[in-house]
Design a protein around this nucleic acid. Sequence first.
DNA 1: TAGATTGTTAATCGATTAACAATC
DNA 2: TAGATTGTTAATCGATTAACAATC
Lengths: 224, 224
Amino acid sequence: MTLAKSDQSGTEPGDLDNPRARLSFGQAARFSRYLQVLTQAQKTGRETLSSQELSDYTRVNSTQIRRDLSGFGKFGKRGVGYNVDALAKQVREILQTGGQQNIALFGAGHLGKAIGSSDLFADHGFNVVAVFDADPKKMGTKVGGLSVRPVADAEAVLAEHEVVVAVLAVPGEAAGELADRLVASGVKIIFNYSESLLDVPAEVTVYTSNPAVDLLHALYFYLS
Amino acid sequence: MTLAKSDQSGTEPGDLDNPRARLSFGQAARFSRYLQVLTQAQKTGRETLSSQELSDYTRVNSTQIRRDLSGFGKFGKRGVGYNVDALAKQVREILQTGGQQNIALFGAGHLGKAIGSSDLFADHGFNVVAVFDADPKKMGTKVGGLSVRPVADAEAVLAEHEVVVAVLAVPGEAAGELADRLVASGVKIIFNYSESLLDVPAEVTVYTSNPAVDLLHALYFYLS
DNA sequence: TAGATTGTTAATCGATTAACAATC
DNA sequence: TAGATTGTTAATCGATTAACAATC
């Protein structure tokens, strides 16, 4: 939450004279979604997308999209839309996604295997460097090309690869203690796929994924 | 998006005289998250939670939380916090989560198995009624107590169980065509775990889950 | 009592929306 | 040209934040 501080300038959030202006929390969330849609559109060979199409896929208002983008330049062509390749490149620059990031995956169950063998992270330049599990029987089995390792190795691996991002696909009972170890090892971003509520220091960001929460949200509007 | 219309009254969103006042899009999202944390806190035997603790777990501002809740009544005790059981009950009423909802799961791969065998949905009263897959070799195998069925059966099963919610844990290539069939069968809410962008009519809500998007977002603040 | 936390107000900031000239 | 869509402004709405009296 302390990360959510917006830029101090009361004027243009992304002034052309200052293209490194810090994005607000909401803006960064939106730009991330734009990039996801653009990346996927590139795969299907789309050459242009209008702000309205981007809006349909991201559920962000189309005026908002044009405003977000126009803060960094004039990337669109009136009457046509935005060039997908060019805009994807621009958004990557805005989000500063240049550097390689290493990720550690904890849990080699169904969910761990699903995440480890998907291209979700690789598509955006993230590199899963290790898969850990507590079950001795799983040691050495392969998940997405990596051999499963004992959780005891975690500290050494995290340090060696300078891992800042950890994905927790473990049972709820194991998550709390594991999170404490990760925080002690310098992990700053935790994706929590367990049910457990994690207590971490303010400088660590926890993303808890829970489809049931989104379903409650969606159903509320469907039912009323 | 069309679902996001807020209530028309410019005054109290949740007037005590009108406890059924429609929640705004953002409010419904927040109440869903409160309920998730409260449900989990119940499991660990917590008796009370303060708005600050709820804020730490939901990343929603604590004043915002108190304000959301106070729109529906005075549920807290000053100097103590909120009773977990009582507040969970209240929030369930506010979100109108009484009715049973049936869900169909498509895809019996790693991700499908992870979702089908978890308690994520069951915890909130949702009922997975069928698991479908395209692979003939998987027919009859079990996922979370259900036998995997051919996708050809989908229309009949969706109609029989009045399914409004579908979860797509299938490869991207299969998702688009499947979504069209689901929409034709009356499905209104689709959880899309594939990479594919889905084109659906305005009355259908698509939730696309993508950890990489959240990671881009989180990293932006970590790196800058 | 003293400390903690709610319930509530007011000020500020960011998001949404409508509208439209500019222009591809 | 005519149609479509951007870039931009202004108005409104919702979220965030600080502050604090009320009260458990």
